[in-house]
C-alpha cells in the first residue's frame, strides 16, 4: 500500500483540493460533470441552491487577488454557505500571530472549509495537514506550485467548445517559469489525455526540466501555434520576477505577444484563453483578447461553476458512505 493521498478520504472521495497531481481521470471528469450541473444556477431567478446551507467557508488570502477571491465567494454564496474573507497580509500576522494560531482561532469559530491562497509553494498542503478532520482545504493558488481550480475551469471551458480531449493540441504561451497555472494545466491536460501539449516562450521563462512533465517546447510562437486547437496565454508576472529575464515589454510583445496574424497559424476554429488579468499589448493584442476566438470572459463565468463543484464535492466527502440503494430512496 502506498501512503494515502491527503486529497482523498478513505472512500476515494475528494476531501481537499490541493493539486491536480495525484487525481485520476475519473475524478477530474466528475468535477467537470458537477460543474456542468451547477452552471445553470447562475441563469435562474434565484441564483442559489441550498446544498451548503449552514456551512462556513473562510477565504484565507495571504496574497492579493480579486478575480479568484470573488469567484470563490460567489461560488460559496450560490451554494448558500456563509463566507468570511480574511486578508492575512493586512491582518493578525502583522501583529505577530503565527499561521498555526490563526488556523486554530478560525477552527474555534467552527469553520468548515478554508480556501487558501499563498505566495509560498506548498502552503495549502501544509494547512490541510494541520486542520481538524472535519475541515476541507481548497488551494486557491500557492506560489509557483499549483492553481488547481484555475486549471479545472480552463478544462471546463475547453470541454464546452471541444468535448474530446484526446484529439486536442493545446499550446500554453508565455511565462511558464513563474506560472502555477501552467503547471496545473499540464497535469490536467495530460491526465485527461490531450493528444499534444506544447509550451511556448523565451528560454529564460521556460523551466529547464519542463519536458519531463510531457510537453513539447517551442521558442518560436508562429511555429508553436501551428495546427493547435487551444491557445492558453499566460500573464507576464512582473511581480514575481526578481531579475532581468526579459529585454523589454515591447520586445516581448514583438516576439511572443498574440496578434491576429500569429493566431492565423493555429487552426481556424482554435479558441484563445487567458487566466486574467490581461496585460493588453504585452502578451496579447486587444483585437485578439476581444476577438471572435476569445473565450476569456467565459472562463470567468465557468470559474464560479467549477468552484461550486469542488466545494460541494469536498464538503460531501464528509458524509457517511452511501450505498447506491439509499441514494435512490427518498
Amino acid at each position: 500500500m502506498t501512503h494515502a493521498n491527503i486529497q482523498l478520504d478513505e472512500n476515494g472521495h475528494l476531501k481537499h483540493f490541493l493539486s491536480i497531481y495525484g487525481l485520476d481521470r475519473g475524478l477530474l471528469l466528475s468535477i467537470l460533470d458537477h460543474a456542468r450541473s451547477f452552471a445553470g444556477v447562475g441563469d435562474r431567478a434565484v441564483k442559489k441552491v441550498p446544498l451548503l446551507r449552514g456551512k462556513t467557508i473562510v477565504n484565507l488570502f495571504f496574497e492579493p487577488s480579486t478575480r479568484t477571491r470573488t469567484t470563490f465567494e460567489l461560488a460559496a454564496k450560490r451554494l448558500s454557505a456563509d463566507v468570511l474573507n480574511i486578508n492575512i497580509s493586512t491582518s493578525a500576522t502583522k501583529k505577530g500571530e503565527s499561521l498555526f494560531d490563526t488556523l486554530q482561532t478560525l477552527e474555534a469559530m467552527h469553520c468548515d472549509m478554508f480556501v487558501v491562497r499563498h505566495a509560498n509553494s506548498g502552503a495549502a498542503h501544509f494547512i490541510a495537514g494541520k486542520v481538524a478532520p472535519h475541515i476541507s482545504v481548497i488551494n486557491g493558488g500557492d506560489g509557483r506550485h499549483s492553481h488547481p481550480t484555475q486549471a479545472m475551469l480552463d478544462m471546463f471551458t475547453i470541454q464546452q467548445h471541444k468535448p474530446d480531449f484526446t484529439r486536442l493540441k493545446v499550446a500554453i504561451v508565455g511565462d511558464i517559469l513563474h506560472s502555477r497555472v501552467a503547471r496545473s494545466e499540464i497535469h490536467a491536460l495530460a491526465t485527461l489525455g490531450a493528444e499534444e501539449i506544447r509550451v511556448i516562450g523565451p528560454k529564460t521563462l521556460i523551466p529547464t526540466d519542463i519536458e519531463a512533465m510531457g510537453p513539447r517546447v517551442f521558442h518560436n510562437l508562429e511555429q508553436g501555434l501551428e495546427d493547435v486547437d487551444v491557445v492558453i496565454m499566460l500573464r507576464l508576472q512582473n511581480e514575481r520576477m526578481c531579475s532581468a529575464l526579459l529585454p523589454s515589454e515591447h520586445e516581448y510583445f514583438h516576439l511572443y505577444g498574440l496578434t491576429e496574424k500569429k493566431l492565423a497559424n493555429a487552426r481556424a476554429d482554435a479558441i484563445v484563453m487567458h487566466p486574467g488579468p490581461i496585460n493588453r499589448g504585452i502578451e496579447i493584442d486587444s483585437s485578439v483578447a476581444d476577438g471572435r476566438q476569445s473565450v476569456i470572459l467565459q472562463q470567468v463565468s465557468h470559474g464560479i461553476a467549477v468552484r461550486m463543484a469542488v466545494m460541494a464535492m469536498t464538503m460531501g466527502s464528509l458524509a457517511d458512505t452511501p450505498t447506491l440503494e439509499s441514494r435512490d430512496e427518498v
Binding site: H13, S30, D33, H34, R36, S37, F38, A39, G40, V49, P50, L51, A312, M313, G316, S317, L318, A319, D320, P322, S326, R327, V330
Partner: peptide, 22 residues
C-alpha cells in the same frame, strides 16, 4: 433534478452524476 435540494446531503454527500435541471 432535485439532487441539490435534498435534505440528506450532510448524511450521504453528493450524488455521483447530477444531470442539470432543464
Amino acid at each position: 433534478n432535485i439532487a441539490f435540494y435534498r435534505d440528506d446531503f450532510s448524511r450521504i454527500g453528493m450524488h455521483p452524476h447530477v444531470s442539470p435541471s432543464n
